[in-house]
Amino acid sequence: MAYAHESPWTVAQFASDMKQSHSHYFTQESEIVAFLGFHQVCDEIEITNIATKIKGRGHGRELMKRLIEHAEFQEIASIFLEVRASNQEARLFYEKFGFQEIGLRKNYYQSPQEDAVLMSLKVGKTDE
């Protein structure tokens, strides 16, 4: 199962998102064993979904590497995401790529209700 809790998105929401011009999905292998969805607007990327069918095979790591390479090529300044506060495994995964916690969204997730930790990765040159 790709999500520890029920998917936060319905099939209809995924289908609608895939039709948006700012939405992109990377998949791994011909059978979808992992995917990473993101929105790209101007010089920012927001990861909307990342999931793997079976953990521990490196699919998520490969997709994240592809995203970062894409961001560097597109001269993206930052990549953002939110993750369940209790999802230590995912938070450690993101930290290995250099993501840092930048904030908290109270009661962001439902089923069960939980805070979201906001994380970001500076990718390209910024004016800061």
Rank of each mutant, 00 (worst) to 15 (best):
21 S>T: 15
23 S>G: 02
24 H>W: 06
18 M>A: 12
20 Q>F: 05
10 T>F: 01
5 H>Q: 11
14 F>V: 09
17 D>R: 10
31 E>R: 12
13 Q>A: 13
18 M>T: 07
27 T>M: 10
25 Y>F: 15
21 S>L: 15
17 D>A: 11
16 S>P: 01
15 A>Q: 15
18 M>Y: 03
28 Q>Y: 13
10 T>P: 02
32 I>C: 15
18 M>K: 12
17 D>T: 08
26 F>T: 00
25 Y>I: 09
8 P>E: 08
30 S>C: 10
28 Q>R: 07
11 V>S: 01
22 H>S: 13
6 E>N: 06
6 E>H: 14
23 S>R: 08
31 E>G: 12
4 A>H: 13
28 Q>M: 01
19 K>N: 13
22 H>I: 13
22 H>W: 10
29 E>P: 00
8 P>R: 03
16 S>A: 15
22 H>R: 12
27 T>W: 09
12 A>W: 00
4 A>P: 09
17 D>Q: 15
32 I>D: 05
5 H>R: 10
20 Q>P: 09
23 S>H: 02
15 A>V: 11
13 Q>R: 03
5 H>E: 11
21 S>P: 15
8 P>M: 09
19 K>W: 08
21 S>I: 11
7 S>L: 00
15 A>K: 15
20 Q>Y: 10
9 W>Q: 01
16 S>M: 12
33 V>D: 05
24 H>S: 05
23 S>E: 01
12 A>G: 04
22 H>E: 08
33 V>M: 02
13 Q>L: 08
31 E>V: 11
20 Q>E: 14
29 E>G: 05
10 T>L: 01
24 H>K: 06
14 F>G: 04
14 F>L: 07
6 E>Y: 11
24 H>F: 10
6 E>P: 09
9 W>N: 01
22 H>N: 15
10 T>W: 02
25 Y>D: 01
25 Y>A: 07
18 M>F: 07
